[in-house]
Amino acid sequence: MTTDPTVPTLHWTDGALELSARWRAESGVAPPRRVVLADDRMTADAAYRQASEGVALLWQGDFQNARQLLQAMARRIDRKRRKPPASPLDAFNAHRQAQAQRARTLGMLLIPLDADYSIPLRRAPEVKQACSEVYGEPGAPAGESSVVSLRELLGLIGAHEWRKKGVEIGALGDRIHPHYGVFSPVRGEYVDLVARAPLPSRSLAFDIGTGTGVLAAVLAKRGVERVVATDADPRALACARENVARLGFTERVQVCEADLFPPGRAPLVVCNPPWLPARPSSPIERAVYDPDSGMLRGFLNGLAAHLEPGGEGWLILSDFAEHLGLRSREALHTMIDMAGLKVVGRDDIRPVHPKAADPSDPLYRARSLETTSLWRLGAK
């Protein structure tokens, strides 16, 4: 039981006993108010019904049976027929609403964790390392336990495996190892754009919002003598530093905490902001959604003051938002113009990820038209 009032706590009853444990949710959701105990006797229909009604199921049975139950609940959600949306924007809004509801429902199946992150259930996997990478090393008071949704726990396990395996980056001839909660460079087209664009200088570059550090590493690989890579997220900073060190670029790439720009000017400033101007529903979505284009506007408005004379700012941006009706091309050009910038050139590339060619994807109409661009910008 936790006694710290600042720590989110889950409460439930077991017979006459009033019990509680630390609540873990990287998505930021509050602990469920209604909790019942569940085990291998619970049917998928009963679990789905209770979860849909906001009742959390604290699992006491076999861990692998819980995984199968979660899959069965997901099938019941996914087979619901939905009315085809009238426009790409309607499709986007309906998709986000459906995904949020799906996450809420599936998040109601909960798994207990002991203080050392072991799972006190039959046939449970070893998850101590995966949990330590996200929650920190076990340092809770003796006897403190916690509870996490099975959906989040499986996400932690998957992220741990990605971190170990890494993502092959052709431009590096090596792998980038993403951390949990840091955008993974699985869509390689934007990396390819940076790898092939003509460099205005090899002396210095800023990489704004570096994430895994992949673009900073690509610039160093291309011969840029010094790269300053910034990010405001602690996980991204740790991830970038680890990747830079493993790739052997520590002497040439400096990773530092900053809200967008580091001090000074550079002949090349690169930024790959979140592509969709919408509000994230959880901290993990901040790499995808940029409310009111806040990071995009911040980069554009500050770029001229951080460019050396004749320097270039490289903005890597998909037009997916345009095809969804979230932001027009005219609005983007207006932002560029109002920031005192001009377009020096542009290089386009079409995405090759599976969803771009999947007609069953709810956003296929927009995805099939998507182009990713590297906008070369200069000060007026």
Rank of each mutant, 00 (worst) to 15 (best):
P200T: 05
P200M: 13
R202L: 12
S203H: 10
L204C: 11
L204D: 15
L204G: 13
F206P: 12
F206K: 02
F206N: 05
D207S: 08
G209R: 06
T210G: 11
T210W: 10
T210I: 09
T210F: 13
T212D: 15
G213F: 12
G213N: 09
G213M: 02
G213P: 02
V214E: 07
V214M: 12
V214I: 14
L215P: 11
A216V: 01
A216L: 09
A216I: 03
A216C: 05
A217Y: 03
A217Q: 12
V218D: 04
A220C: 03
A220M: 01
A220K: 00
K221S: 13
K221H: 15
K221D: 13
R222V: 07
G223A: 08
E225W: 04
E225G: 08
E225S: 14
V227H: 00
V228N: 06
A229G: 11
D231F: 05
D231V: 03
A232S: 14
A232H: 15
D233S: 13
P234T: 09
P234C: 06
R235Y: 15
R235D: 15
R235L: 13
A236N: 03
A236W: 00
L237G: 00
A238Y: 00
C239N: 08
C239H: 01
C239T: 01
A240S: 10
R241L: 00
R241W: 01
E242N: 05
V244E: 14
A245I: 00
R246A: 09
R246G: 05
G248C: 00
E251H: 06
E251Q: 12
R252A: 00
V255C: 03
V255P: 06
E257H: 10
A258L: 11
D259F: 11
D259I: 01
F261Y: 15
P263H: 05
G264Y: 15
R265T: 11
A266F: 14
A266M: 11
P267W: 14
V269M: 03
V270S: 04
V270I: 13
V270H: 07
P273H: 08
W275V: 00
W275Y: 13
P277S: 10
A278G: 04
A278H: 04
R279W: 14
R279L: 12
R279E: 15
R279V: 14
P280C: 05
P280L: 04
P280Y: 01
S282W: 04
P283K: 03
A287Y: 12
V288C: 02
D292I: 01
D292H: 09
S293P: 09
S293K: 05
G294L: 08
R297L: 09
R297V: 10
F299A: 00
L300Q: 00
N301A: 11
L303Y: 05
A304Y: 09
A304G: 02
A304L: 02
A304C: 02
E308V: 04
P309A: 07
G310K: 12
G310M: 13
G310R: 06
G310H: 12
G310L: 10
G311Y: 10
E312R: 10
E312C: 11
L315F: 01
L317S: 02
L317C: 10
D319A: 01
D319C: 05
A321H: 00
